[in-house]
Design a protein around this nucleic acid. Sequence first.
DNA 1: TGATCTTTTGTACGATAGTACAAATCACAT
DNA 2: ATGTGATTTGTACTATCGTACAAAAGATCA
Lengths: 236, 236
Amino acid sequence: MVRKPTSKESARKPNMREAILAAAEELFATNGFNAVSVRDIAQAAGANPGSVTYHFKTKDGLLLEIYRRHCGPMNLRRSELLAAAKRVRDLQDRLEAIVRAYVAPAFTSGSDLAGGGARFTRLRAVMSAEGNEVARKIIAQTFDDTSHAFIDAIHESLPHIPRTDIVWRSHFLLGALYYSLVTPDRVSRLSRGEADGSDPANAIEQLVQATVAAFQAPALDQAAPARRRPVVSSKT
Amino acid sequence: MVRKPTSKESARKPNMREAILAAAEELFATNGFNAVSVRDIAQAAGANPGSVTYHFKTKDGLLLEIYRRHCGPMNLRRSELLAAAKRVRDLQDRLEAIVRAYVAPAFTSGSDLAGGGARFTRLRAVMSAEGNEVARKIIAQTFDDTSHAFIDAIHESLPHIPRTDIVWRSHFLLGALYYSLVTPDRVSRLSRGEADGSDPANAIEQLVQATVAAFQAPALDQAAPARRRPVVSSKT
DNA sequence: TGATCTTTTGTACGATAGTACAAATCACAT
DNA sequence: ATGTGATTTGTACTATCGTACAAAAGATCA
């Protein structure tokens, strides 16, 4: 006989609610929100369509619960890693540590709730591209604090760079991170098989290396372009 | 009186086919493929749903035509800009010119067919995030050649960096570029209004500056992945 | 066991999706 | 002006969507 769960938590299958959440997360992350039907999710989870309604009321509610489930642990983990990174003495090393603290959790595999995980990160990438309203709201509420914390930390290790530039560059970092998770095969294809875009460790190292250099780039001189412009112009 | 079109090309409205294409491009780029219905497109174009079927047969066919219409002129323009950039003598300046040639056309406004335009670039970003099959096929066919040309050119101006690293970094560039077009408001928000994420010129300069530095970062040492401390020799 | 609550199932409903197609309308050559 | 081919309209068909809801099934405890 199997172990009995507590009186308040029992179901016919081990945990149908979890199965539905996992299936939905996977399907949303790979196909987007609108391309996936409630029936698709139910089938992938081995459940009945009505069961989804029972647990999450609406399709939006299901997406909302996916976010709720991840955001807390993920931001906590990121804060811990950021705090540790900020304790690094050398400014140079500290910057790399901060960037790594930002990047690494996004690539953790499987159902790692604390790290956020590649699947959930990819989900966020897709939702942001689709302009999903549910996602947009919860993102602005939940992630901006953490983003500001990272931006501030990076700014402290690069005091001579204007905050505006730091914001832009961390924006680029997130875009690069998202894109790496969305189309990893493109890297493999363009490198003619020499690089594996699906290897997280590889992606992390490449991303950290490139991003640290980007942050360290000279400040953009808003007033006057210091270096002479290249001959190429985009307009006629 | 207005100019008469040739006998084979006439319609009640100036050019309904074009209006439908433009409306579809706009709607797809902002909401994704699946969230937009043929009726939405028809309404936005001031046309009848049946008219969409008449001109493009299916919804997929409409998307395909949007791509077909842009790809040719866009790749041509990019090739020209790349050729011009490659003529820059100084390696440092050449790298920046190449990156600019890659970035600038993606931000051109309005219905600029040759440049590709921000709208079409954003469309590609969203389609890639959604994993759209029609887009995936045509992208691999049409864009990889140009991508390789740019990668090769960058590689030539940075001979000491392995090609693999160049591929990764140009992948990050595209991700950053896409993301900047998808959620420009995030930059404004995070910079507390100090930066305008929607200003193309601003985005281009920031992206070029950051990306050039990223390309110039030291090569990733494959043998010893965990380097103790980062080296800052990327810039002079 | 039987009462009670939770969960799952099965099904149905209205809305909307993509698409097909005949009729209406237009531009233009004759 | 009229016939002809291209285009637009209006509408209808079928499939599938999200969701609701009653009944069935399981779990829990007196």
